[in-house]
């Protein structure tokens, strides 16, 4: 049983690693945090694997853990921190989209997480509230503040 569990877990980590890294990347905006979020969430999943596996949705568990980690100060547990680095630059078809990606980096983690869960994960506000352990009102206010800020930073058509 234990060996089976370990094999299942390893298979899950291997199969889902890339997809989870993609989620970590849009959540955090950079490859270092993405790798770190995935690794930390998978380590936590491992501790809870038998229970989570019984419930049948380890992927949701990991994504929830990653989202909560992202908005938390868990990084403070690790004492070496990178406060800033030159932005990572994906290539976009439109310069406006590139500007939007840059503007996303200026949002506080919780606001960014709400947008990513809503527009990348396609979660409802109720699901976002449960994921981040905040009220639905907070989801709405955080989303609204984030969108307002993106609008003010990136007025359409004014980038070039």
């Amino acid at each position: 049983m234990e060996v089976e569990d370990d094999e299942d877990y390893a298979r899950f980590a291997a199969d889902r690693g890339d997809a989870l890294t993609r989620f970590g990347y849009v959540l955090s905006g950079n490859p270092h945090d993405a790798a770190d979020l995935v690794q930390e969430a998978l380590v936590r999943l491992r501790a809870a694997w038998p229970r989570v596996r019984r419930k049948g949705n380890p992927e949701a568990y990991v994504r929830t853990t990653m989202s909560r980690l992202h908005i938390s100060i868990w990084r403070a547990r690790r004492h070496e921190r990178l406060a800033w680095e030159p932005p990572d630059r994906p290539v976009f078809d439109s310069p406006d989209d590139g500007a939007l990606w840059s503007a996303l980096a200026t949002l506080p983690p919780r606001q960014r997480a709400v947008l990513v869960l809503r527009y990348y994960e396609d979660l409802s506000d109720e699901e976002i509230a449960a994921t981040l352990k905040i009220s639905r009102g907070t989801v709405r206010s955080q989303a609204s503040r984030a969108l307002d800020k993106l609008r003010t930073l990136q007025p359409l058509g004014s980038m070039r």
């Binding site: 270092h32 770190d36 690794q39 930390e40 690790r78 921190r81 990178l82 406060a83 949002l107």
Partner: peptide, 8 residues
């Protein structure tokens, strides 16, 4: 997994 990035 050794470096951390705060929001820019």
């Amino acid at each position: 997994p050794v470096v951390f990035l705060d929001p820019a």
